[in-house]
Each structure stands twice: as structure tokens, then as C-alpha cells.
């Protein structure tokens, strides 16, 4: 800094001593490598973060394309990347076409009603919902809603329960065996039971949500419950003793103790449980939809499989890729949420 001011001041006078020139040169020499160095690191960074994964994907696509052309199935050749890409487009077109049909349906209905009303003013119009085919994006949407509602329901039950278990040793001892036994059970084993119970208990002439939705959602909930309860309770019970003592010295009331000490302290563990269970829930949901023919991506895959047209395998492959993408996005979203909420930045590195 000093050298530079000196330089400019002397430059005005048109008198440059040797020394300042030297300093300026030295400065230049120092600056140059720093710039190129940082440029280098940026390049290597971009290379590492973008180019290498990109190359990985490219190699994968090549292997896929190569292998696919060699596999013959009863439904024709195994789809390669280009066939899948094509089907992705056609699935989207089908979706748009369906939307156009839906629009037309409602317009026709409206016109019909208007016409009836013109003739007979007492007529009470019946508005019918469009019951067209569920398109691929519709199925994606259904699956997402199902997994999220199941997940939220599980969180609403599991986090308070986990906190209670973590705080109370007696409760822990009582509940622990149940959790330990149910934890390793695949939620799919619950599916038939859930289905039967829902159809027996959930009887309503005008149901708010479909039974199939409820079945899938409860299965997701059951699957999310255990990891969340366990992680929350472990987080709560492993709070540093000194922090609990701080709370005791301050005589924080129970609710405030939970709010100010217990909850923040166990946030990292709670999120670990949530991320874990959301990942598993997404996998389980697809399987449950396939098994029980509940609407969603799993049903889409199953229908295409049963359908057995020459495009089916490519369409299933589209679903597989979309399922993967959504799973990845769900995990990333949870991570972002954790970063936003948690104080423990070290625990959210990856």
C-alpha cells in the first residue's frame, strides 16, 4: 500500500527513484503468481466439481448404451439412453394432451350447465370432476405428496415421543423393547395389515382422501417412525450433563428446559434421523405402490410392466431415473433445511 502511494505521488512529479521502481516491480512479481495461482485453483476446482462428474456420467451413458444394445428381452431390446430420452418426451406430451382434454371436458360441462340453466332456472348444477388417465407427472406428484405427508406425520409423532423417551429413563426402558423389535421389520410387511385396518376403520361416504393414499402414507409413516424416534431419543439422552446442570441451576421449568436446552442440543441427531428415514421412506413408498397398486410412481412402473408394449421398458427406465433424482433432491432439501436450522455446522458438511 505504502509503496503504491509513494509511487503515484512521485509519478506526478515525474521523478522516479530507483527504489520505488524496484518496489513496484517486486509488487508486480508478487501479484502475478498470486493471480495465476488462484486461477489455477479455480480451474482445478471447476474441473473437479463439474468436469469429472460430467465425465463419469458420460462414461456411464456409454456403457449403458453399449450394454443395452446387446440385451434382448421379450419386449424388444433393452432401452438405451436415446430411447429413454425419447420416452421422456412422449410422456410429457401425453401429459400435455391429457391437460388439453381436461380443459375441454370442463368447458363442455360448463356450457351444458349454462344451457340447462337457461331452460330451467331451478336446476341445481352437478359438477363432475374429470376422471382421465393419470399421467406420469401426476404420478410423480402423487408419490411426492404421499411421502411428504407420511414423513411429516411420522415427525409429528416421533420427535415428541423421542424427546420423552430420551428424558425419561423409565419410559425408555418400557418402550425400548417394542422399538427394538419393530425397527428391523420391513414396512412392507405392515402393508397388508395397514390395508385391512384402513378399509375396516376408514369408512366415510365422502372420504377426504382416498384409501389407497392413506395406505401408502401410513406405510411411509411406519417406516419413518423408528429411525426418528431412536435418533431423537439418543440425541436427547446424550446431552452433556453440564448443560442439564445449567438448566437445573437456573430452575428452568420443564417446558422451557425442552425448548431452550433439549431441542437445540439434539437438533443434529434429530436431523440425522429425519434424513435417514426420508431416504428409506422414498424407497419403500415405490415398492408399496407397486405391491398395493396404489397410485404413484410405483403403480406407473407396475402398469408399464403389465402393459408390455415395446416402449414399456424405456418408460420404466424414465421412472427409475426420475425416482433417483427425486430421492437425491429430497436428501439435499433436508440437508439445506438442517443447515438452516442447526447450530452445529460441522455436522452438515456433506
Amino acid at each position: 500500500m505504502q509503496a503504491r502511494t509513494e509511487l503515484s505521488a512521485q509519478g506526478c512529479l515525474g521523478e522516479r527513484t530507483n527504489m520505488t521502481t524496484e518496489t513496484a516491480l517486486a509488487n508486480n512479481n508478487i501479484n502475478k503468481p498470486i493471480i495465476s495461482e488462484s486461477l489455477k485453483t479455480t480451474i482445478t476446482k471447476t474441473f473437479k466439481t463439474l468436469l469429472i462428474p460430467f465425465a463419469g456420467i458420460l462414461v456411464f451413458l456409454m456403457i449403458w448404451a453399449g450394454a443395452a444394445s446387446k440385451i434382448d428381452t421379450s419386449l424388444g431390446k433393452f432401452p438405451g439412453p436415446s430411447a429413454v430420452w425419447e420416452q421422456m418426451g412422449s410422456l410429457y406430451e401425453e401429459h400435455s394432451a391429457e391437460r388439453v382434454k381436461e380443459q375441454a371436458f370442463y368447458e363442455r360441462q360448463e356450457k351444458r350447465i349454462e344451457a340447462r340453466l337457461a331452460k330451467d332456472p331451478d336446476y341445481v348444477p352437478k359438477i363432475r370432476a374429470y376422471t382421465g388417465k393419470e399421467t406420469f407427472p401426476d404420478q410423480i406428484f402423487t408419490s411426492l405428496i404421499t411421502v411428504l405427508s407420511g414423513f411429516v406425520l411420522a415427525a409429528v409423532i416421533a420427535i415428541p415421543l423421542g424427546i420423552a423417551i430420551g428424558l425419561n429413563k423409565t419410559l425408555n426402558a418400557a418402550v425400548n423393547p417394542v422399538i427394538q423389535i419393530f425397527k428391523p421389520v420391513s414396512p412392507l410387511a405392515w402393508l397388508p395389515l395397514v390395508t385391512m385396518v384402513v378399509s375396516a376403520v376408514y369408512i366415510s361416504p365422502d372420504p377426504l382422501v382416498a384409501k389407497s393414499f392413506l395406505n401408502s402414507m401410513i406405510t411411509v409413516t411406519l417406516c419413518c417412525l423408528w429411525p426418528m424416534v431412536i435418533n431423537t431419543s439418543v440425541g436427547v439422552s446424550s446431552i452433556e450433563k453440564d448443560l442439564v446442570n445449567v438448566s437445573r441451576v437456573l430452575r428452568l421449568p420443564a417446558l422451557k428446559h425442552v425448548q431452550k436446552i433439549v431441542l437445540p442440543a439434539s437438533i443434529p441427531m434429530i436431523f440425522t434421523g429425519m434424513r435417514l428415514s426420508l431416504g428409506v421412506a422414498w424407497m419403500v413408498l415405490i415398492a408399496a405402490e407397486m405391491l398395493a397398486q396404489n397410485p404413484g410412481l410405483g403403480k406407473f412402473v407396475w402398469d408399464e410392466f403389465q402393459n408390455g408394449s415395446s416402449n414399456s421398458l424405456a418408460r420404466i427406465m424414465v421412472a427409475v431415473i426420475v425416482i433417483g433424482f427425486i430421492g437425491f433432491l429430497l436428501d439435499r432439501t433436508m440437508l439445506q433445511l438442517q443447515r438452516f436450522v442447526s447450530w452445529d455446522k460441522a455436522g452438515t458438511a456433506s
Binding site: E240, D242, V249, R251, I261, A265, I267, D344
Partner: peptide
């Protein structure tokens, strides 16, 4: 325990958040 007998713990025990 009570705040009229405040404790300074060995390892600070501040709430990290």
C-alpha cells in the same frame, strides 16, 4: 439447585448454539 448459588463449571458449559 437455584440461581442464588450460581455455578461456574470446569469446562465453561455454555450453550453452543
Amino acid at each position: 439447585p437455584g440461581p442464588e448459588r450460581a455455578v461456574v463449571f470446569q469446562n465453561h458449559s455454555l450453550l453452543p448454539w
